[in-house]
Nucleic acid binder design. Structure first.
Lengths: 333, 333
DNA sequence: ATAAAGCGAGTAAACGCTTGCAAATTATGT
DNA sequence: ACATAATTTGCAAGCGTTTACTCGCTTTAT
């Protein structure tokens, strides 16, 4: 006995109305007599009818699905953003199609096309930056997109972020205030505008304000990993730096561990500020002081913004900057 | 000038063939003359045709989409599993719809219905355990499901795991070998069969083997968080335990930190073994020894298994247990 | 009492694709 | 050259919904 799928027709028949009426009650359309609605609802329940979202999508041209593109879901930074997105999405009854950016560069376009072919109603992008090509593809579709924790140099694309420059400016200023003259800036690839432009700008700005000359010897580039952090410590130490601002928590944890292990006391002999305030900051010993990006909120706001765009609502701010704060723990004085 | 969506008809017209032929070349059907195929491909490229996956889904009754249900994406344990799933899924051209299990209990059923309404071709579940109700809903659909890092008491449902009991047995045996008589078992909710049954069984078994009496005073239940770990340390210490096996990394990290802070040297005065070998183990100082669950692989194998089920291939093993290993770092002797 | 307006429900045409079947074309063997 | 087989194509019927349009029946106003 094969299990038959219950369709709108079956419900219509059992409830003695036309399928249009079923559709109306399922969609909450007001043009249905209360009595009929009740009867239909009952039948739906009895037959265990489950509207086919694919068919609905085809007929309505809405999939109630959004595409989320991120580099790596095991990176707590993105996972936190994703959680914010997910919560708001489910609040608005959207489903999320998650896709990771693979190593290979070229496939960003392919991922996008795949998502568009699935008729997603919107997109959230958390990669490093949108390529021209991708932007073009996006432009030719009408699918709205917003960047979360990612920036668009030209502010053409909607995005939600914190003011990276400002945050780093503050951090560095505090370090300066603590008497440091040589402060290392340890970032990921400087090609990524967040590190290479915004954050570095904040660093430079703070130094300038304090009349300290910028020296590229104090700027380090490393992969975002504990190992890379451990490996770079010697270089950082040898640069003469007495404090460091690190753009990512794993990296910072690695540096911290190497420092402690090599006998450099943190924060007494060396202060460390990191950037993402993931749970890692609480796991290291000493616990790390960090910029607190409201990651969950960034994701949530990005998703909320996207729902507005999908509803064609008026958007007042294309680029929203959320407030950040600074959490002092034990890696700074 | 409104942008028109390019459909299969447009391509057919431009290529001077019927839409059926377009469909065939898009689907790689062999019954197309090479010359025609080339021409069509060219037109597809020129018009920038992107097949509508929703329409395909409706016509073919396949969505090339699977649903993934997990408790919390910011938990590295699940994130790692998810990554394995994602990679294999994209290898097989499936998309993933990610849904988080909210706090509220009752909605598991709703989540499932939503996913089924989206016509997912398969499901991967990583929650604590499938409720009867959910199982029933699942049974009435034909959608295959596999559990990843989650267990089914009755082995009715396909699942991929490690042998939790065996792993813990080994850990505890090593601790016993190191001379410990009082070993704490610190888990999450013991209602969860993984902790409360499988792991605890391994613990008991190892004690028994060593002729050590099991004492419930040495069994602790705590939330999976750093704070909970820090908070529980005193109780653990006061129980007289000289070593602990902890079922989750955050929790272990909290315990470790409190121990060190309170002057108890790890591993000299107290040994700690944890369970998930997430990156946290490398971030704490001392770094933590851990069972190494091949999380990524579990996810990957689960997804692979699911593809087989979706293809109606013969499955030899309903329940697959992957090999685990034990990584010794600095929290044990 | 009667026309206008409104409500509730049905009809049928999309939506963009897959696919079984039949028709047309080309290749093969004699 | 002809029949037959094999290869390519086209036709059209779905797939399960949504949604304009219509239509009959009540209300309401006059």
């Amino acid at each position: 006995m094969e299990k038959k799928v219950v369709t709108i027709y079956d419900v219509a028949e059992a409830a003695n109305v036309s399928m249009a009426t079923i559709s109306r009650v399922v969609n909450g359309n007001a043009n249905v007599k209360e009595e009929t609605r009740k009867r239909v609802l009952e039948v739906i329940d009895r037959l265990n009818y489950r509207p086919n979202a694919v068919a609905r999508g085809l007929a309505s041209k809405k999939s109630t699905t959004i595409g989320v593109i991120l580099p790596d879901i095991t990176d707590l930074y993105f996972a936190s953003l994703a959680k914010g997105i997910d919560d708001v999405a489910s609040m608005y009854k959207y489903n999320i199609i998650l896709t990771s950016l693979q190593e290979s560069i070229g496939d960003e376009e392919q991922i996008l096309n795949n998502l568009l072919s699935k008729q997603v109603d919107g997109l959230i992008y958390m990669g490093k930056q949108l390529s021209k090509k991708v932007k073009r593809t996006l432009g030719s579709s009408k699918t709205p997109i917003v960047l979360a924790g990612s920036v668009d140099r030209n502010n053409e694309t909607a995005s939600v972020n914190i003011d990276f420059t400002d945050a780093v400016y503050n951090i560095i200023s505090q370090l300066v205030q603590n008497g440091h003259k040589k402060i290392a800036f340890v970032g990921g690839s400087l090609e990524n505008p967040i590190d290479g432009k915004y954050r570095l700008d904040g660093y430079k700005k703070a130094l300038k304000k304090a009349h300290i000359n910028f020296s590229s010897n104090l700027v380090f580039e490393a992969e975002y990993s504990v190992r890379a952090g451990e490996a770079i410590w010697d270089a950082v130490k040898n640069s003469g730096a007495t404090a460091a601002y690190v753009t990512e928590d794993l990296l910072a944890a690695g540096i911290l561990n190497s420092a402690m292990k090599s006998g450099t006391k943190v924060p007494e002999d060396f202060e460390i500020f990191t950037s993402n305030n993931t749970v890692l900051c609480e796991v290291t010993r000493p616990k790390m002081s960090s910029i607190e990006e409201p990651l969950y909120d960034i994701g949530a706001v990005a998703m909320r913004l996207l729902t507005k765009m999908m509803n064609q609502e008026q958007i007042d701010e294309n680029t929203v900057k959320l407030p950040y704060s600074i959490v002092k723990r034990e890696s700074t004085k």
